[in-house]
Simulated assay, not measured.
Amino acid sequence: MSDFVEGLKRGAKAFKRALGPSRYEAANIKVICPHCQNDIFDEGSAQLNTAGASLLNLDWLNKSAKILVCTKCGLIQWFGKSLEKIN
């Protein structure tokens, strides 16, 4: 029973790390904040709206971008291609 509880604890910690701030690479280059040189970011996404799609109420057709928010200074960086989380 003790092994089971320890396994649950390890799994919960890994899950928390996977969802929290992390380090990233874009095109095999480590992402660094150009403002404060921090390398830990929160990840999000943002819609790349276009006037035509918005006018027709079709925003869901627009592409989205990944964003990284620096955990130290808050600078937001936009990425149109995929990011890879590294540890």
Rank of each mutant, 00 (worst) to 15 (best):
W78L: 12
N28L: 06
G20D: 06
K81C: 00
G74D: 09
A12E: 09
K85D: 01
K16G: 03
S82H: 04
G7F: 09
L48F: 06
S82W: 00
S54N: 12
R23A: 12
S54V: 01
I67G: 01
I32G: 02
K63N: 07
D39R: 08
W78A: 02
W60E: 06
G74M: 05
N28M: 04
R17A: 14
K16H: 06
I76P: 04
N28K: 12
I32F: 03
V31I: 15
I67S: 06
L48D: 13
K81H: 08
S54D: 11
K16R: 10
C73T: 00
I67F: 04
I29T: 13
I29K: 14
L61M: 14
T71V: 12
A51F: 14
L83H: 01
N87H: 09
L55G: 02
A12T: 09
F41E: 01
A26F: 14
V31N: 07
L58A: 04
N49L: 14
K16F: 12
N49F: 15
D39E: 15
S54A: 07
G7D: 14
S22N: 14
P21V: 11
L68F: 08
A26S: 10
N57D: 09
G11R: 13
I67R: 02
C73M: 07
R10V: 07
K13Y: 09
E6C: 02
F4R: 02
L58I: 00
L56P: 00
S45K: 06
N49M: 11
H35L: 09
G20T: 05
V5P: 00
S64C: 04
S2C: 00
N87C: 01
G52I: 07
L8N: 07
T71F: 03
L83D: 05
S22M: 09
M1P: 03
K66H: 11
L68Q: 03
K66A: 04
N62R: 03
W60N: 05
L19A: 05
L58T: 00
K9E: 14
